[in-house]
Amino acid sequence: MKKIAFFDIDGTLTSEIDGSLPKSAINAIRHARTFGHLMFINTGRCFQNVEPRFRRIGFDGYVCGCGTNIFCSGTEALHVAQTHSITMQLLEAARKTNVDILFESRKEVAFDKSKSLTHPDAIHQYKAFLNRGYDMPENLENPNFFCDKFVVWYQTPDQLEEFRKVSDPYFTCIDRGGTFREFVPIGYSKATGIQYVLDYYHLDLDAAYAIGDSNNDLPMLSYVPNSVAMGNASPASLFDQVSFVTKRASEDGIAYALEQLGFFES
């Protein structure tokens, strides 16, 4: 039976130690495809932030932006974008509450540089994008600017509470730990992305396997009957919510999972 696997990126495809891409994971994914199984990335990252090193592995498609942008066999099958008006409401709310906001879309990422970034993690992320050579727009009031989703860093709970008065009618707030939150359009998730892909290929839910390492992956892990947690998953409570626990990403966890779950056979 043809199977389809959906992989998170950070801490799943990449080593939890240094963010590198284990050779064993690359080889295993390519090997599984030779048996006719479908391999998909399923990530909160928008497509422009799925780095070339991941695309070079050779995937059948991508579920990006928590289900808001989907590529199947080289075709962009779905793209859900926010209007410029909604994006400006979010920008104004971020400025009023002094949270650091990062807008994401399929083509670009953008910080609000009208003010200095205040959160250390936001500053770190901004520098990481610069190091990757990202060309980040600064004129966010441009009528052609919009986002697909976004994240914020905040200092106090009151800041987040006030900001969400504006965002909650449009977005689901995902707790990523600490003072970091991810916002995804209501009605979209890694799970809805999986169902969209299954419908596209006319596959049953039983054929789907989801592999992740954090609470951000729970929507897809709880949606499929074949759920896999990496051995480095955090929090550890995730182990009790999946059907299979593989080895750590740095210890060939992807290769081990695909072999054990029958991806190296037709």
Rank of each mutant, 00 (worst) to 15 (best):
residue 49 N to C: 09
residue 98 N to T: 14
residue 234 S to Q: 13
residue 123 I to P: 04
residue 92 E to I: 02
residue 46 C to D: 11
residue 225 P to A: 00
residue 136 M to T: 02
residue 102 L to V: 00
residue 79 H to S: 15
residue 201 Y to V: 04
residue 61 G to V: 07
residue 229 A to Y: 00
residue 121 D to K: 14
residue 187 G to K: 05
residue 13 L to Y: 03
residue 2 K to R: 15
residue 183 F to D: 01
residue 206 D to A: 15
residue 49 N to F: 14
residue 40 F to V: 08
residue 39 M to C: 11
residue 216 N to P: 00
residue 180 F to M: 12
residue 11 G to I: 04
residue 257 A to I: 03
residue 94 A to H: 11
residue 254 I to C: 04
residue 67 G to T: 05
residue 176 R to I: 05
residue 164 R to W: 08
residue 247 K to R: 14
residue 212 G to N: 06
residue 25 A to H: 10
residue 79 H to V: 13
residue 129 F to Q: 06
residue 232 N to A: 05
residue 1 M to S: 13
residue 68 T to G: 03
residue 110 A to T: 00
residue 230 M to I: 02
residue 193 G to P: 00
residue 20 S to E: 07
residue 245 V to S: 00
residue 124 H to G: 06
residue 263 F to P: 02
residue 52 P to Y: 12
residue 36 G to L: 05
residue 99 V to Y: 08
residue 178 G to V: 07
residue 157 P to K: 08
residue 197 V to A: 01
residue 39 M to Y: 08
residue 219 P to N: 09
residue 116 S to H: 13
residue 207 A to M: 11
residue 57 I to P: 04
residue 79 H to Y: 13
residue 26 I to P: 04
residue 254 I to M: 06
residue 139 N to H: 14
residue 5 A to E: 07
residue 238 L to M: 08
residue 74 G to Y: 11
